[in-house]
Amino acid sequence: MQVEVSGSAVISLLVDNESGALARIVELFSGRGYNIQSLTVAPVDEHSQTSRVNIVTTGTQSSIWQVKTQLERLVPVSRVVNLTAEGPYVAREMALVKVVSSGEPRTEALRIAQAFRARAVDTTASSFVFELTGSTDKLDSFIELMRPLGLVEVSRTGVASICRGPQTIQNF
């Protein structure tokens, strides 16, 4: 048996927007011992009948394949695509980052925020709330830089993702 390398994968699903659908998905992950790093969900069609769920998970290739086939068994799930395996895709998330500081650290926080193109969406004499959108890596490094500069609170959305090019989740 060859040793399989563990990696992370972005899985996108289309699900019927019904009561319990998200619980089924989450319980499948916990019940079978799969890992969820982040999860986003929102209705995406004009009548709010279908929701898109994006899950970032980690595992070996075969365990991620298992996740996909298990998800496909769920009745309300109509589509499952492992974006990481299917080709180039865009994955973005948003963070709201609160920094409480004064003097030099406060100036430095603002300067770094500008470099990252983060927007200050709330400002008081002692605090900023920065809004930042980007890849998970970009958000991670911004938060790391803010840590010594008075970072007190972080709120992140989790990853929304879509494949590049004219293709859609419907026609993989």
């Binding site: 048996m1 075969s62 394949w65 298992q66 086939t69 298990q70 496909e72 068994r73």
Partner: peptide, 10 residues
Amino acid sequence: DPSQINKIVH
């Protein structure tokens, strides 16, 4: 059931 294939034994 596709999820059974390669689940335990390759």
